[in-house]
């Protein structure tokens, strides 16, 4: 959690990458993390693959499917991440759906996260009410920061509530859409970015969904603290693999 806080305290706009663990090759997980850090990415979301990712568009669905075919499991991910903190310093967040975590056991999962040095979790289908009532204590016991989503349709009252229970940042979903949209941001979307920034929330906001290039990254971070790119990065891995991670990062945020 401190790693997340320290990163957010930096005086720059942040760039984060989401990728699916075990994709394209089962043993790519750690080398992708290292390459991303080397190229100046500020923090990383490691996607835990799931058979039925209902908030995701075709790109992440497909990468999850390939990862599962590659034999990725929750247990395997933790094995891969063992020792990662000897080499990687930036915050690492696991993003995954709740069912695989439930099957692993919520407490066992949190314990394993803490053991390998995971800082936070994003679980899109674990609503804040259920979290507060049943799981918050466990997450806190292991020092894990649970990150919640807000969308353009989230009411102000609910945003304030989510802000009050969040520790770290608020994940601001850019548009009403599953992941992987490449339509660009409308004026309405940019007004939403502004509206949220004017709410002066306790937690900084990081924008995700629909950021695919320099332009959308720029628009997202005009008001927000940073942005997360997922599908566009995965597509890039698809065509040219990790030796080009450097090119990809440069194309978004030139040094």
């Amino acid at each position: 959690m401190n790693r997340i806080k320290n990163t957010l305290a930096q005086n720059t706009k942040l760039l984060s990458i989401y990728f699916t663990a075990g994709y394209p090759e089962p043993e790519d997980t750690v080398s992708i993390i290292k390459d991303l850090e080397k190229n100046g990415i500020d923090f990383i979301e490691i996607g835990l693959p799931f058979s039925d990712p209902l908030a995701d568009g075709p790109t992440i669905q497909e990468s999850s499917g390939v990862a599962l075919k590659n034999g990725m499991t929750t247990k395997k991910l933790f094995q891969q991440l063992e020792g990662i903190r000897e080499e990687v310093e930036i915050p690492l967040i696991i993003m995954g759906y709740f069912n695989p975590i439930l099957q692993f056991g919520v407490e066992a999962f949190c314990q394993s996260c803490a053991a390998v040095g995971i800082d936070g979790l994003i679980i899109p289908d674990l609503p804040v009410e259920e979290y507060n009532e049943k799981y918050r204590e466990i997450f806190e016991k292991y020092g894990l920061s649970n990150i919640f989503l807000i969308t353009p349709q989230t009411s102000e009252e609910r945003i304030r509530f989510i802000d009050s229970v969040s520790e770290g940042f608020i994940y601001m979903v850019s548009t009403a859409s599953v992941t992987g949209s490449t339509k660009g941001f409308t004026k309405e979307t940019r007004d939403y970015f502004r509206r949220i920034s004017e709410m002066k929330l306790r937690n900084p906001q990081i924008v995700g969904f629909g950021i695919s290039d320099k332009e959308t990254y720029g628009q997202a971070t005009e008001f927000a603290k940073g942005a997360i790119i997922g599908s566009a990065f995965i597509k890039h891995l698809n065509s040219s693999r990790k030796q080009d991670i450097a090119d990809f990062v440069k194309s978004i945020r030139p040094v």
Binding site: A55, D125, L126, E130, L149, T154, S155
Partner: peptide
């Protein structure tokens, strides 16, 4: 039961 849904579906 319950409603284990992403925030996008909440409204």
């Amino acid at each position: 039961g319950g409603a284990y849904i992403p925030e996008m579906l909440y409204p």
